[in-house]
Every structure is written in C-alpha cells, then in structure tokens.
Write a protein that binds this DNA or RNA. Sequence first.
RNA 1: GCUCCCGUCGUCUAGGGGUUAGGACACGAGCUUUUCAAGCUUGCGACACGGGUUCGAUUCCCGUCGGGAGUACCA
Length: 474
Amino acid sequence: MSVRTRFAPSPTGYLHVGGLRTALYAFLFARQHQGTFILRIEDTDQSRKVEGATEKLIDALQWAGVEFDEGPGKEGAYGPYIQSQRLQIYHDHIKQLLEQGKAYRCFCSAERLEQLRAGGAAMYDRHCRSIRAEDANARVAAGEPHVVRMMIPDEGEVRFHDEVRGDVEIACSTIDDQVLLKTDGFPTYHLAVVVDDHTMAVTHVIRGEEWLPSTPKHILLYRYFGWEIPKFAHLPLLLNPDKSKLSKRQGDVAVEDYRAKGYLKAALVNFVAFLGWNPGDEREIFSMAELTRDFSIERVGKAGAVFNIDKLNWMNQQHIKAAPASELLPLIRPLLIEKQWDALPDAYLLQVIELMKERVVVTGDFVTTCPYFYEDPASYDETSRAKNWKPETPAQMRSLIARLETLSTFDAASIEASLRTTAEEQKVGAGKLIHPMRLSISGAANGPSLFHLAEVLGKETVLRRMKRTLEVFT
RNA sequence: GCUCCCGUCGUCUAGGGGUUAGGACACGAGCUUUUCAAGCUUGCGACACGGGUUCGAUUCCCGUCGGGAGUACCA
C-alpha cells in the first residue's frame, strides 16, 4: 500500500510556523516513500470562519516549497478536500454509529453542561445514554436540538504505538463521551479526522503533540467502524522562550511574517526542519532536496523545541551567502521600488548583492544597511568624521581625486593603487585616506571593501561624492 | 484537580553502561582585515534530584521535582 500523508490545518488566516514544520515532515515523509501528500482544510468550526484563509494557507505552503499532490484546487480521487463540503459523508457515518449503538444522541443544554462543570465534573455524566432509541428519534423528529456523542467503554484501556513516542496507554475510564456531531450539524474534529483520514486512505497521521491525548478516541472510532488503524506520529511542540506552546503575542508565528521580514524560504524550512529533527551527524545547512533525502521519522525527538530567532538569523545568513545573486535580485527589487529606488539596472544590483551578501542577515538589509548604493549620502557618520576627517584631510582628498580622475579603468585594483600611491606621496598611512574616502562616498563608517565599493559605485559617482564632501565639510 | 507526554550547555542538539560528554547558535578572547561583517583559532558552558540494578550509571528501572499539552457543541 502506498504511503499517503496529509496536513490538515484549520483555516485561521495564516500558516503557523509549527504548522509549516508539521506539513514539512509529512511532505518529506511522503516524498521519500514515493507517496502522496494531501492538504485538507478542517473548517468545521463555523464560528471561526476566516475569509480568504484557505488561499493564504496554500500560498504560504507553496512559497515554502511544500507542494501537495491532492487538495483544494488539486482534486484527486478522494475529494472534496474541504471538510465543510463533506457533511453528507459525516452524516452517513454518524448514522452507522447510531444504528450500531456506538454513539447516542444527547439533548443536554449548554446550561446543563455548564452546571455540571461548575459542580466539579471533569467529564460529561452520560445523562443521555439512558434515553431509549425510539424516544430519542421522536425528539429528533420533533425538532429538538441535540448533539451526537461517542459511546466510550466503561472499562479497559486503549493502547497504541506512536512512531515517535513509542507505546502509549490510556484507561477508557478517563475518556469523555466525546461529541462527534454538533447541534449545527457539523462534525467535531474527532469524527472528521477519522472519517477523512480513512476515506482518503491516509496511512500515516503526522500531527502535533497536542493531539496525543485524544488519539485513543480516534483509535476507538477506527475500531467502531472496523477500519484499519493508520500509523501515528505525534511531533513535539514548538515553544516560546518561556517554554509554553509557541504563540503570537510572544513573537511572530506566521510563515508570512518571516517571509515579509526577509527570511529566505530555504532558511525557514531548514531551520524549522531542525526543530525536533537532525541527521545524526554535524551537518546543519540543508536544502529541501537534501532534507527529502535524509529525513527520517525515527530521528524525530520527543522534547519540545524553543523557536530560537538567533539561530534562524544565522541560518538565513548562511543561505543568503550561498544563494546566487541572481536568485536574490527578485527578492530585493521590490524593496527598492518601495523606496523609490527603481531605475537601477540588473547588472548594477547584481554587483551590489555580491558585495553585500556576506554582511546581511535578512534581505531587507540589502536596502537598509547600504543606502549609499542607491543615492548620494544624505548625512555623514559623525563619529567617523570626528575621528578621521582631520584638518589635513581635504588636501589629501584633493590629490586623491586628481589621481582617480586620470584612471581609464575604474576597477578595485586601480583604485587601490591610486590610493596607496597618493598615501605614499603624502607620507601618510593608507588608512588616513581610506577612512575619509569611505566616509565621503558612503556617508558610513563601515561597509564592504572600500575599493570594491568604489568600483561598483563607478567613477562618476565616486568623484561627485568626494567633491561634494569637500564642500559640505568646509 | 485529573489524564497523557517530556527532561544533556542559556537555546537547538549528538551520544549512550566505562567518553577529556561532541557539534551548532548566542556570548567572551585572539588572528585576519582599510572599516563592519564573514572566515579561522580559542574560551565559557550541560547529563534536574533521590533511590535502586551493576564492578561501573548521564545512559536501564522506580520515585520525586520541574516543564508542557489535553481536559470545549475549537481545532
């Protein structure tokens, strides 16, 4: 039987980074087994409907390179892939459970349940279990609102093997008579996952650890239906720095946020993959292809992992350094346009990127940390000016300008030679010219190699800026 | 409260009955350099605790403690 995995998010309006990791693992697992990866939208809570959420989810997933084989807009043989479009299927299965006495109708009001809880009850008191089927049917026929609850055995325990956690066992006496069908006719998560995973022929249920405690309910449902039980793999949670479940309020959780902040998809995917998994050796920088080759569910850890932004930053830096400038350009161009720096030719920007690649953390840094590539300095670093612009500097700069003006080839080597010759002539160290020149052509105290910087800027710009500084600094 | 899960440097982790407990991020120092980064070298830094089992436990077992999740007609 071929492997089929799925990612089944509820459409909340964005893709959570924890969700991205879950999706990634399920995707990688399917890929390496020549299996199928499914996207299913779990929108059974009508009160939490968010407009456009599914599109956003798909968009984020596709951006990250987690491609589903079946799902909304990619109908396979098992659709529809949106739960709100599968109501009839759930009703058919509820009917079956009802007929077989594996579920019962419950007419308890919300108020009664509240009172129960207020009275200290941890679970439903199974009040409606004793209603005879004929009576229940009559009340339903009369239009009385109700839910359908699952009949949990009084005794025994449910055991199952989890692919990451090993054997887990829970006593039935601690399991509540779970609501399967809500008053509004929509299924709860518990009914819908089981029915969908089975009818979509899912072989491996890979999901977050928050589902571990309810897995026995799901196992029981599989048994009630007489279905084969899939393999389960519950992934450790992603944590806030304070070790609670990763949530917004303590930082960004949406994949879209990281994308907007200038993280490369390769870095985010790499980072998130390593939260709970590692290859067993000391390699850390992985492409999607390498992850697909080396990932294994057996090596997934059990403990939750803190989402550490420092490590992500480092990883992003590594991926940016390794990426060809041509791949970075399309990510940076829009940021420049936002700043009205839109008339710059590709060839020029490619050089800028090449020069800046090693000193950048997020793509936005290509713009914000080096505005001097895009316009003449509007101001000059005061500390550097105080330290490096001495009374004798203007004269030295003037002779440097004169020498640079004679250059027919304005490349780093020639510029450097000109500067060093001028320094010798002036009987000063090269540093005495380097720092003022950097300040005058960039306005900044630091940045890429001065000579390469000047080469990229070009002769005309460099000379214009140097002359202008001479005026501004008098 | 109850149920379940988890517990190696601050963080991500490797390892596993006998190791100088390894790597990465972060942090400190040095080298390199025209600056800032990057890079290289280096330092700091961990087996939660208590009992067993054993010649020997960080590793296996039990307990405690700590953390987390679940406990909805949310997923």
